[in-house]
């Protein structure tokens, strides 16, 4: 409050830095410092996100095979998109994946986080929980691919051992997506649990003490204290994980390559396939842009619905 007041006096300020404020209400010196701090991230953002996104927007209006110059074709890629059954199939497949992946992952992560908070503060346990996340996606997918193998995989050996029929986890249309979702739940739930755990740490202990005095059971306290107070963190976690989940790619590329038939042809894999295997970069860009718009809307709705910017605390 005081600093800007001083700055408004012209006589003194001319001896120091100019008083002109920029867009963000910062003084020039501060602004320079701010831009310097932001610069590394900004360079990366422009080079790897903004510029590709703008070029992608342009390419989505062209017929472009990557190897010869793009040719402007208006909205043809977008009209093609509307009538492409594989695009809609890809959206459906991806949504089904996100539903299983996020549903299972969030419940499990919340469970692990609450267990950690209420039972142990051990660093070792926290490290172990985090472990699957430290394994590269491709490696995790490969290892599970072998474990799920129809003939030799340990999982099918166990299934056969207890007298059940072997399951072609990656070969059956109805099993492929749940299997891929499971692999990514395994890899991400520990990490998600840690995020939620951090949110739990921020809930004041005295609320629980008060709950305990009132004779609330663990279950009741979870429902009436933990969940409501955790809401902003949970909302953030959901936005981040759902956005990530929609972009499922590597596990599919390693295991099923979109098959059987089109059962795991998720949107990102379809885009990649179109752009880099089939040299239809224009159409791939149009789909990528559609996905971007979809995710932006989805995230906005999610944030509004979960009131992520407001806490029930205090």
């Amino acid at each position: 409050m005081t600093a800007p007041a001083i700055d408004r006096r012209p006589a003194r300020s001319s001896a120091r830095t100019p008083t002109k404020k920029n867009l963000f209400g910062l003084k020039r010196r501060e602004a320079i410092a701010a831009w310097l701090f932001v610069a590394p991230a900004l360079v990366g953002f422009i080079a790897f996100y903004l510029w590709p996104a703008i070029s992608g927007l342009y390419y989505s209006f062209t017929d472009f095979d990557l190897l010869t110059a793009p040719e402007f074709i208006g909205v043809a890629n977008y009209t093609r998109l509307l009538s492409d059954p594989l695009f809609w199939n890809a959206l459906g497949t991806t949504s089904w994946y996100v539903l299983i992946n996020i549903g299972l992952q969030t419940v499990l992560a919340l469970g692990i986080a609450v267990l950690m908070q209420r039972l142990t503060q051990s660093m070792v346990v926290r490290g172990v929980v985090m472990l699957p996340y430290l394994i590269a996606n491709v490696i995790a997918a490969l290892v599970w691919f072998y474990m799920f193998d129809f003939q030799f995989g340990i999982i099918n050996e166990i299934i056969a051992g207890i007298g059940l029929d072997r399951v072609a986890f990656f070969g059956e249309s109805e099993w492929a997506i749940p299997t891929v979702a499971f692999i990514n739940v395994w890899r991400h739930m520990g990490y998600t649990a840690l995020l939620i755990f951090a949110g739990l740490q921020a809930i004041p202990k005295d609320v629980y003490e008060a709950g305990a005095i009132d004779g609330g059971s663990e279950l009741r306290m979870f429902r009436s204290i933990t969940l409501p107070l955790l809401r902003p963190v949970l909302a953030m976690v959901l936005v981040v994980t759902v956005t990530g989940s929609f972009q499922i790619f590597d596990t599919i590329a390693v295991t099923t390559q979109g098959g059987p038939v089109n059962a795991t042809r998720v949107i990102n894999y379809y885009i990649f396939d179109m752009a880099f295997n089939r040299f239809d970069f224009g159409y791939g860009s149009a789909m990528a842009l559609a996905l971007f718009v979809l995710l932006a809307v989805f995230t906005f709705v999610q944030l509004r619905l979960t009131r992520a910017n407001k806490s029930d605390l205090g």
Partner: peptide, 9 residues
């Protein structure tokens, strides 16, 4: 089955 042949090694 194709399912078995495409699910693993």
């Amino acid at each position: 089955s194709y399912q078995a042949a495409s699910s693993g090694v």
